[in-house]
Write a protein that binds this DNA or RNA. Structure first.
Lengths: 177, 177
DNA sequence: AGCCGATACCTGTCCGAACAAGTAAATCGC
DNA sequence: GCGATTTACTTGTTCGGACAGGTATCGGCT
């Protein structure tokens, strides 16, 4: 049993090593797209690394944070909050339940729905999760002034808005060209 | 013909629908981290959508672009170029081979290695892939001036550099805190 | 009441990402 | 030359993400 990681199938456990990341000089494509791609990869890598040591997998922490913040929710609500996929949410919640961080209970007002609520045990994680997020934020914004942070945030949101808008505009990705 | 998508197991075929993305107001955590997260998700969604219609899955196009650009490479080189995972690369190349976009041949100078080269058939895709990337870049940077684009790129690179540096610094993620 | 379309969820499948472990071959050091 | 280490690749496993169905339920409409 090499990976004597978790008693419940949870409990990831890695080396904690972040590879040095040479940052390849991209082959042609859009520079901003590539930059987003690489930044996202690094960001994911760090988040995963920070989370792993507190027993969560990337993505699960977002569910937990919403549950801690808002209390019991239906899966559908979680899907909407995280803008996630229903199928993914089903299995994520199943794993969180199996890991003991979440409980499920039928919605009294809707026999189709199930309410998801954080367990008492899960609350012990909250502080750690929030610290990890703060830590990640510190790493990302290291050496940036408050103004620069605000500018960076504004830039990211601008790019995001562009994509959101493009998603709404049918002509953008579909027919044309 | 719903599931009869590809004769080789390839050939993704989706609805082409990009959900509207409500952009949840995040629960607590670092605003920049969340922005990166959401931007990356949207970006991935669009890239996937554009690629799907030309018969590739996200990630595969990066391999192909490097091969088209640089010619035959060993898998290890591809791993380094994309800063990817060796195991992922093995299976990605296997799928590309199975789909007929890539051929593999033993490296004459190193019996461990295998050379990966684009097939003639794959070259027909090149233009489409490059157009898709251009298109994605247009969507992301819609309405931005050249200066704003440069600034955005600089911002993204700055954040990336921070993470790269943090990755190199052992004290950042490991013990401490 | 009965019907029909929307919802809420589940399962199956395919894919990329990451880690662990193992095999074969190359290379270094003696 | 030979053993120890490194390298190149493969396989197994676990996740998240996305799409394609399928089932039970809810609701509005007739």
């Amino acid at each position: 049993m090499t990976g004597t990681t978790g008693e419940t199938g949870q409990g990831p456990e890695g080396t904690g090593q972040v590879t040095s990341v040479p940052v390849p000089a991209a082959a042609g494509g859009g520079p901003i797209s590539h930059a987003i791609f690489r930044l996202a990869r690094l960001h994911r890598m760090f988040a995963g690394q920070l989370l792993r040591r507190i027993g969560l997998h990337p993505g699960q922490e977002l569910v937990m944070m919403h549950l801690w913040e808002l209390g019991p929710r239906r899966q559908t609500d979680l899907v909407r909050l995280l803008d996630s996929d229903a199928a993914t949410m089903t299995r994520t919640v199943q794993r969180l339940e199996q890991a003991g961080f979440v409980r499920r209970r039928p919605d009294p007002t809707d026999k189709r729905a199930s309410l998801v609520e954080p367990t008492a045990a899960s609350h012990a994680l909250r502080r750690e999760v929030e610290q990890s997020w703060s830590r990640l934020e510190e790493l990302v914004t290291a050496g940036l002034s408050a103004d620069e942070c605000a500018a960076a945030l504004s830039t990211l949101e601008r790019l995001e808005r562009n994509l959101v808008q493009a998603a709404a505009d049918p002509a953008c990705t579909d027919p044309e060209r």
